[in-house]
Simulated assay, not measured.
Amino acid sequence: MLRMFTTINGQVEQISAPENGSWLSLADPTDVELATVAQETGVDLADLRAPLDDEERSRVDVEEDYTMIIVDIPTVEQRSGRDWYETIPLSIIITQNMIITVCMQDTPVLHPFMEGTIRGFNTFMRSRFILQILYRNATMYLRYLRIIDRETDKLELRLRHAMQNQEIIMLMELSKTLVYFTTSLKSNEIVMEKLMTLSRIKQYPEDEDLLEDVITENKQAIEMANIYSGVLSNMTDAFGSIVSNNLNNVMRIFTIISITLSIPTLIFSMYGMNFQDGMQGMPLSDSRWGFIVIIAISLVLSAIVTWFLTRSRLFK
């Protein structure tokens, strides 16, 4: 989808043809749209396609007629009726006359700019536009991290009551998401450091506070991602220990049952042999009440062994 915007009298308006100072937004573009933008702006088609690869790394490329900035942005993916978070590349291309953004999805990071709800946004002020996108991107990371933190708390309560494979898989997915977020945020930080040293992009004095806010928000997002990642890692270890402890308790019970049942099994196996008539040596074998007495003795011995094992320190 190709959409073009420009600022007219402080208001963001959508236009039908590119012009000086306009913003071209490409979201999940077709080959025709990419070719059209490449022809009208002079941007290499390969650079326009670069952010469409979800494995593309964050970087800054300085070409002869334009500068391309690629950063990782957070996104939400629906899987099995749940929201899962990951990162995708967003390209910001600055030419002499306009600015171009390319992404494989219609990302909510750019929606406020299209709706004109960002204070001080102007398509002509390209360096400020870049900082505003980066600031918006950092706040989106913080928002999703808070959502992940709440999901972690809910998952912890569920794991305390019932530990199923589904909950463990969710725990692994959240841990993987935080790893992706941390890696992407650190890559974006490097991009910002390099971006601010480029003399090609005009700097405005009033953007200094915005730059500080961008750096602060990005660092805060990195710290939050590290903290939540550590919490999830400790939670995983703790529940792993719980699973191991529960398994030990189950094996303890089965061991006690196995030892207890081995006593009557041993006794009955000896008395179950085929003896010749008149054979001596087996107690109570010729008694009328021998069978009942043997059962009683077996039950008493089993009870004594069970009592001893349940109080033994080896099975605590």
Rank of each mutant, 00 (worst) to 15 (best):
residue 26 L to S: 06
residue 27 A to C: 11
residue 27 A to K: 01
residue 28 D to S: 14
residue 29 P to Q: 03
residue 29 P to G: 08
residue 33 E to A: 12
residue 33 E to C: 04
residue 35 A to R: 01
residue 37 V to N: 03
residue 37 V to S: 07
residue 38 A to K: 00
residue 38 A to R: 00
residue 39 Q to K: 08
residue 39 Q to C: 02
residue 41 T to R: 05
residue 42 G to Y: 02
residue 43 V to N: 13
residue 44 D to M: 03
residue 45 L to E: 15
residue 45 L to A: 14
residue 47 D to C: 12
residue 48 L to Q: 09
residue 49 R to F: 01
residue 49 R to A: 09
residue 50 A to P: 00
residue 52 L to K: 09
residue 52 L to N: 11
residue 56 E to C: 04
residue 56 E to N: 01
residue 57 R to E: 12
residue 61 D to C: 05
residue 62 V to W: 07
residue 62 V to P: 11
residue 63 E to Y: 14
residue 67 T to P: 05
residue 68 M to P: 03
residue 69 I to K: 11
residue 71 V to W: 01
residue 71 V to A: 13
residue 74 P to I: 11
residue 74 P to V: 11
residue 76 V to P: 07
residue 77 E to S: 11
residue 81 G to E: 07
residue 84 W to G: 03
residue 84 W to N: 09
residue 84 W to E: 14
residue 84 W to A: 04
residue 86 E to V: 01
residue 87 T to C: 14
residue 88 I to W: 02
residue 89 P to D: 13
residue 90 L to Y: 07
residue 92 I to G: 05
residue 92 I to L: 14
residue 92 I to M: 15
residue 93 I to V: 13
residue 94 I to D: 02
residue 94 I to C: 10
residue 95 T to Y: 02
residue 95 T to S: 06
residue 96 Q to I: 02
residue 96 Q to D: 15
residue 98 M to Y: 11
residue 99 I to N: 05
residue 99 I to L: 15
residue 100 I to R: 13
residue 102 V to G: 13
residue 103 C to M: 06
residue 104 M to G: 14
residue 104 M to C: 04
residue 104 M to R: 08
residue 105 Q to C: 03
residue 105 Q to A: 05
residue 106 D to N: 10
residue 107 T to G: 09
residue 108 P to M: 05
residue 110 L to Y: 10
residue 110 L to C: 06
residue 112 P to I: 12
residue 112 P to T: 14
residue 113 F to G: 04
residue 113 F to T: 02
residue 113 F to S: 04
residue 115 E to I: 04
residue 115 E to A: 12
residue 115 E to C: 05
residue 116 G to P: 08
residue 116 G to A: 10
residue 118 I to D: 03
residue 118 I to R: 12
residue 123 T to A: 00
residue 124 F to M: 04
residue 125 M to P: 00
residue 125 M to W: 00
residue 126 R to C: 00
residue 128 R to Y: 01
residue 128 R to E: 08
residue 131 L to V: 00
residue 132 Q to H: 00
residue 132 Q to V: 01
residue 132 Q to T: 00
residue 133 I to R: 03
